[in-house]
Structures are given as structure tokens and as C-alpha cells.
Simulated assay, not measured.
Amino acid sequence: MAHLVLTVVGDDRAGLVRALADTVAVHGGNWERSELAELAGAFAGIVLVTVPDDAAAGLVTALQALDGMLRVTTHTGTHVADAAASRTFSFTVLGNDRPGIVREVTSAIAANALSIDSFTSRTLEAPMAGGTLFEAEVSVRVPADADLAPLVTELERIAGEIQVDLTLA
């Protein structure tokens, strides 16, 4: 089976996910995992599908035919993480929105040579405070034998410096 990672983007409208799902299904593919969202009038996402090796090229061609509705870029998956050799470390960040929060947090992760499994963020109104809050939920892939103390120390330092709440899971 071929693992294909699809990145999709288009103007938001009804039927986009159905058109993508129909195309995958017609080629014998299986929709395994996705993150899809409407963002500022655009629909964007990433989807992992598996498809029989002999149907992969046909699926890629069919996905390109969706252009005009969705622009789909196809990437061939090359590595499946060994879950036994790693663990997941999760945390949330919540505080007043300001430029640079994502840069600061992701710099700490990269400085510790770790990989982000998922990063979900949003801004929301803070009616009691009269401003906008930034919230992020982050999961990081950590080698089973890695020491998390340096990352936790750096995240706590950043949280204090940029005045956000950090919650370790």
C-alpha cells in the first residue's frame, strides 16, 4: 500500500470534502487521518490516505483534476514512526495574543531536536479582559530515552517572558 499525504486548499464552499473523499474512494483508497478547516474564507487541510500501489498514480492524476475546486498537492509518505521507540509530550499555551508566540514555542522545540506531531492554535475573544487570547495545543514526539527537563525549563522560561500560561500534560 502507498501512503499519500495530501495538502488541499480552495475557496470554501459546500461539497469540497465530499469531492475529495469520492476521488479517494473511487481509486480504492482509504482516508486514514486528516486535519481540515475553514480559515478566513479558504478551506485548507492535510489528509493521509492509503491506496493500493497500482492505483496510486491514477489517484494522483484524478486529484489534479479537482483543480478549480481544490488545489491538491500529493506527497509520498516515506516513514512511519516507531511508536515503541518514542513517546508523546503534550502541552498547552494560553495568553494574550501577540506576534511571536508560535516562533518562541517552536524554537524551543527545535532547539531540543524534537519533532512536532501536532500543533493546533486559535485566537479567541476575551470578553472579561477586553482583548484577544491565543491558545495552542502542542504534541511533540520524544525519543523514549530523552530527558524532557531541558525542554520544560525552556518552555517555562518562555511562558514567563511572554506572559502566557503553560500547562503540561
Score class of each variant (00 low, 15 high):
Asp11Pro: 10
Asp11Asn: 11
Asp12Leu: 05
Ala14Asn: 06
Gly15Glu: 03
Gly15Val: 09
Gly15Asn: 03
Arg18Gly: 11
Ala19Phe: 10
Leu20Ile: 04
Leu20His: 02
Ala21Met: 08
Val24Ala: 05
Ala25Met: 06
Val26Trp: 06
Val26Phe: 04
His27Lys: 08
His27Leu: 03
Gly28His: 02
Gly28Tyr: 01
Asn30Thr: 07
Trp31Asp: 00
Trp31Met: 04
Trp31Gln: 03
Arg33Asp: 15
Ser34His: 00
Leu36Asp: 02
Ala37Phe: 07
Leu39Arg: 10
Ala40Val: 04
Gly41Phe: 08
Phe43Gln: 04
Phe43Leu: 01
Gly45Thr: 06
Gly45Ile: 00
Leu48Ser: 00
Leu48Cys: 01
Val49Tyr: 02
Thr50Cys: 06
Pro52Met: 02
Asp53Cys: 11
Asp54Ile: 07
Ala55Val: 10
Ala55Ile: 08
Ala55Ser: 15
Ala56Glu: 06
Ala57Phe: 06
Leu59Cys: 04
Val60Phe: 13
Ala62Asp: 13
Ala62Ser: 13
Gln64Gly: 14
Ala65Glu: 15
Leu66His: 10
Leu66Thr: 11
Met69Ile: 13
Leu70Val: 12
Leu70Ala: 03
Leu70Arg: 05
Thr73Asp: 14
Thr74Ile: 07
Thr74Glu: 03
Thr74Val: 15
His75Pro: 06
Thr76Tyr: 10
Thr78Ile: 09
Thr78Ala: 11
Val80Leu: 08
Val80Thr: 12
Ala81Asn: 09
Asp82Ile: 04
Ala83Thr: 09
Ala83Ser: 09
Ala85Glu: 05
Thr88Gln: 03
Phe89Ile: 05
Phe89Asp: 00
Thr92Ala: 02
Gly95Ser: 08
Asn96Ala: 13
Asn96Ser: 12
Asp97Pro: 11
Arg98Trp: 00
Arg98His: 09
Arg98Pro: 01
Arg98Ser: 03
Pro99Glu: 12
Pro99Phe: 15
Pro99Tyr: 08
Gly100Ile: 12
Ile101Leu: 04
Val102Ala: 05
Val102Arg: 04
Arg103Glu: 15
Arg103Val: 12
Glu104Leu: 09
Glu104Ser: 15
Ile109Phe: 01
Ala110Ile: 02
Ala111His: 14
Ala111Asp: 15
Asn112Trp: 02
Ala113Cys: 11
Leu114Met: 01
Ser115Val: 13
Asp117Gln: 03
Asp117Asn: 01
Asp117Gly: 04
Phe119Glu: 01
Thr123Ala: 00
Leu124Arg: 13
Leu124Glu: 14
Leu124Phe: 14
Pro127Asp: 10
Pro127Asn: 13
Ala129Val: 15
Gly130Phe: 05
Gly131Cys: 09
Thr132Phe: 12
Leu133Arg: 05
Leu133Gly: 05
Leu133Trp: 05
Phe134Val: 05
Phe134Gly: 07
Phe134Ala: 07
Glu135Phe: 08
Ala136Phe: 07
Val138Phe: 01
Val138Pro: 03
Val138Arg: 00
Arg141Ile: 14
Arg141Val: 09
